[in-house]
């Protein structure tokens, strides 16, 4: 496939995948660059939703219909299997989100903060006494 990037056919056939890569990387960036634990969880959810979109778009057939049986014998159905997988993934995703949020509440009770930097500084202090923590000047 040596199609040029400006070929309309190629672009229409692949723009979906590019969209999901952009969304997924935005989610990853929020997760790794922000220190607030709640925001990290929101970033993970965005990452997760981008993966769902990738799976669902692979099951789509142009001109097909939703996989619910109709009387027309010539009907083309989109692939139901990615839908089943992603239904399970969404429900498991909310379970892990709930667990992560419960952990955030516990961390807040123990440390009094949900900022990663502050927590690391406190851990450092606990371990090595009240020295200047590595890389941090706040506190």
């Amino acid at each position: 496939m040596q199609a040029s990037i400006l070929d309309l056919e190629y672009v229409l056939g692949h723009y979906n995948y590019w969209m999901f890569v952009i969304l997924m990387m935005t989610g990853l960036y929020i997760t790794v660059s922000r220190g607030n634990l709640i925001k990290k969880i929101v970033g993970l959810n965005i990452f997760q939703t981008a993966v769902f979109m990738l799976y669902i778009s692979m099951g789509k057939i142009i001109g097909g219909t939703a996989p619910i049986l109709v009387d027309d014998p010539d009907a083309v159905y989109s692939n139901p299997l990615p839908h089943v997988l992603i239904l399970t993934a969404i429900v498991v995703g909310i379970a892990t989100t709930a667990l992560a949020l419960a952990l955030v509440v516990r961390i807040r009770e123990t440390y009094g903060t949900v900022e990663e930097d502050d927590i690391l500084a406190m851990e450092h202090e606990m371990e090595f006494g009240a020295g200047v923590p590595h890389g941090g000047d706040r506190g």
């Binding site: 219909t65 839908h83 429900v91």
Partner: peptide, 21 residues
Amino acid sequence: LDAVDVAFTEAAVGAGISTVL
């Protein structure tokens, strides 16, 4: 993308329960 079951699960779970939590 023809995934109606996924759409209403996402609307109920992602936009509903997750926001409440």
